[in-house]
Design a protein around this nucleic acid. Structure first.
Lengths: 233, 233
DNA sequence: AAGTGGTCTAGACCACGCG
DNA sequence: GCGTGGTCTAGACCACTTC
């Protein structure tokens, strides 16, 4: 393990474990130099790597800070609900806290024995017209404060993105025929094509949330962008 | 413009313009130091950035080389046809070279006046059973050698990935009802849900290819993964 | 004004791996 | 063996931004 990698890993651990939260200030380069007994370039390299990984932002004179979690949607090129749907509003139809069962574990991933999850069913509307259904699980082990959230102002996805630093996300996308309940809720014919997105998010090895979002397929599409080339755009 | 950024941009230009091809050797650090009149750390930083961007690989004693284009599918988490479909084979149904018309430009993007494109229609089979249809345009300005390719051994997507360094890719994914021709070719009922992926790829500002791939929605799904955290995994 | 990050220098030692 | 990259040092000057 090189020295810069070691320094970097220590800071990374503090961020991913939640000890350092978004916005918290890191020690200055000088303090890190003194603490680790290395040259300033070495500390600089460790911090530069953390910046490249998106975990830290640095401002002259102000210092280095834990970065706000980036928008998952932005990174993947999948627009936010509120950008995607003009005149967006949402309604929480069901809300329950329960001990995770086998079906929940299958969706969200491995959880500790007896772990509790928050289960949500949310309808997203565009200008008052139902536009998408969201069926979500949130691990209360990863996000305890979600138990008390009511998701009145922000839908659950946005609420989570503002609070939880995630490290890995997976989207599975498929086409399916609308089943009766969804078709009725979204005002489409049963059997019409739908786009179903299943999104799972982790922080380190720990599952955070799993969401299934169903869109009328002919009304919406999903865009995914990837780039090579200059670091950070 | 900082010195390391300047050095990096020069090398990047040689790679993206195709002057340096995958596998070509770059000057050694010492040669770059002499050529640019900077300290070795500065050259090192420029090369490290190129490595982080995936454009260069470095090996001790051997030198620095232009990286092979990464698998687009791997980066986006979309499996290759040949991994996705057990017993994969393919058939080129139509193959035409033409001057790009308005419809072609709308799909692939802005092309020079009079630019020619290769248009392909390919059926992908799994164990002899039709599994997906691919409708693709390739810009012959970006990939002149495609005009002579027959795509017997490799399907066009794989063939292109092995040859063209791309810098940006966009996938648009939607659900649609199968139209009559596609339904017939894939052996599904007309109106059944399909996953339609439109993929566009650029090298710098230059469009390279546009592909529309139609899958039976109930038989296949697409996975997209994203990661934060330690640079390079 | 002062502290911070951003960059650069001119050296150095080491580990790896090709010839 | 020896050229290469990988890392590190101990300084330095500068630009920016907040105080």
């Amino acid at each position: 393990m090189t020295r810069h990698a070691d320094i970097r890993q220590q800071i990374e651990g503090l961020i991913l474990s939640g000890t350092l939260k978004p916005g918290d200030r890191l020690p200055s380069e000088q303090e890190l130099v003194a603490a680790h007994g290395v040259a300033r370039m070495t500390v600089s390299r460790a911090l530069a790597d953390l910046v490249a990984a998106g975990l830290v932002v640095r401002r002259r004179k102000a210092g280095s800070f834990v970065a706000a979690p980036p928008s998952e949607e932005k990174l993947l090129g999948v627009p936010d609900m509120r950008e995607m749907l003009p005149g967006h509003s949402h309604a929480v139809l069901k809300r329950a806290v329960r001990v995770a069962g086998a079906a929940d574990r299958a969706r969200i991933g491995a959880l500790p024995r007896g772990a509790r999850v928050l289960a949500l069913l949310v309808r997203h509307d565009s200008q008052g017209v139902p536009a998408a259904m969201e069926d979500r699980l949130v691990s209360l082990a990863a996000v305890p404060e979600a138990a008390g959230a009511e998701f009145r102002d922000s839908p659950p996805g946005t609420w989570l993105l503002d609070r939880v630093p995630w490290t890995e996300a997976e989207h599975r996308i498929r086409a399916a025929a609308a089943d009766g309940a969804v078709a009725a809720a979204l005002g489409m014919a049963a059997g019409a094509p739908c786009l179903v997105m299943e999104r799972r998010t982790w922080r380190g090895d720990q599952p955070v949330t799993a969401a299934r979002i169903t869109w009328p397929g002919d009304r919406h599409e999903v865009t995914v962008r990837a780039m090579r080339g200059p670091l950070r755009g």
